[in-house]
């Protein structure tokens, strides 16, 4: 808020920014609105309003099962990312070892390698494993969990390392010198301090796994189709308000998770 900057410039910035943010957000508002239309064939403005599309979306087993499969897969992926990411974050922040930069690059690489490339590499790898050993991974929930854990891990590490950096090691040293065992120090001192980072990391890991399309598209099978894949499969042949209903549920879920994350961490730090 600069006193010196002229009013017209400020108004110009505000108007332009609102237009751009509107451009980003408006499509989502329209798709939520569309989910309540009573029209069979999509047209504007709507003839009336109904909740039937939600019933229909729920009745379609692709969407219902896809939703629960996505929830389960993302939850497991988040737990895997936590188990692998928390110790790795400690090593990255506290460790002083040769090749630390390389270790960090490798751990973050699933975020850097494009989803389609990583997904196709994993798909071919799984099939080659199957040819060699007869062990089927592609198209099973195990394959999905591996792919989604890879997606979740870098987000976990990014947010946990940021909060670990802010922990002053001398507090831990003080506790240790007063006779606390290493585990006591971890649970009583370190963990409470990095809890916001852990929560934000878990939520970001969960969200990014839940919305993944590019990796999952290679790995879904007839009985294991995630919600995002069910959505684009449906879109290939239909475009009606059922999509709106599913989209609205997802928008509500993601918004709530983001609002929770915002309480624990600065959201812009995740990018």
């Amino acid at each position: 808020m600069r006193a010196g900057q002229s009013r017209s410039i400020r108004i110009g910035y505000t108007a332009f920014s609102m237009a751009v943010i509107g451009f980003i957000v408006l499509p989502l508002i329209f798709i939520v609105w569309m989910s309540f239309y009573s029209n069979k064939i999509l047209s504007f403005p709507p003839e009336g309003y109904t909740l039937d599309w939600y019933r229909r979306a729920w009745a379609l087993s692709d969407f219902r099962n896809g939703f629960f499969l996505s929830l389960r897969t993302s939850l497991i992926a988040t737990v895997v990312a936590l188990c692998l990411g928390l110790p790795a974050s400690f090593a990255l922040v506290r460790g002083r070892f040769w090749g630390r930069e390389t270790v960090s690059t490798v751990l973050m690489s699933p975020m850097v390698v494009p989803g389609i490339v990583g997904g196709s590499a994993l798909f071919v790898f799984f099939l080659e494993v199957e040819f060699l050993t007869g062990w089927r991974v592609a198209g099973t929930s195990l394959g999905l969990i591996v792919a989604h854990s890879l997606i979740a891990l870098p987000w976990m590490i990014r947010l946990v390392t940021t909060s670990l950096i802010s922990v002053n090691p001398s507090i831990e040293e003080a506790a240790r010198s007063l006779g606390a065992a290493p585990l006591t120090v971890f649970f009583r001192i370190t963990l409470p301090v990095i809890k916001p980072g852990l929560i934000a990391g878990s939520l970001f890991a969960f969200i990014n796994s839940f919305i993944d399309l590019e990796k999952s598209i290679f790995l879904v099978g007839p009985d294991s189709t995630t919600l995002q894949i069910a959505l684009i499969n449906y879109l290939e042949w239909n475009f009606d308000s059922t999509i709106g209903a599913v989209a609205t549920v997802q928008i509500a879920l993601i918004t709530v998770l983001l609002l929770i994350t915002d309480r624990y961490a600065k959201l812009s730090r995740a990018f």
Binding site: P27, I211, Q250, L258
Partner: peptide, 8 residues
């Protein structure tokens, strides 16, 4: 929210 809503 639009960024993390997913491509689909």
């Amino acid at each position: 929210v639009p960024l993390l809503i997913g491509n689909a």
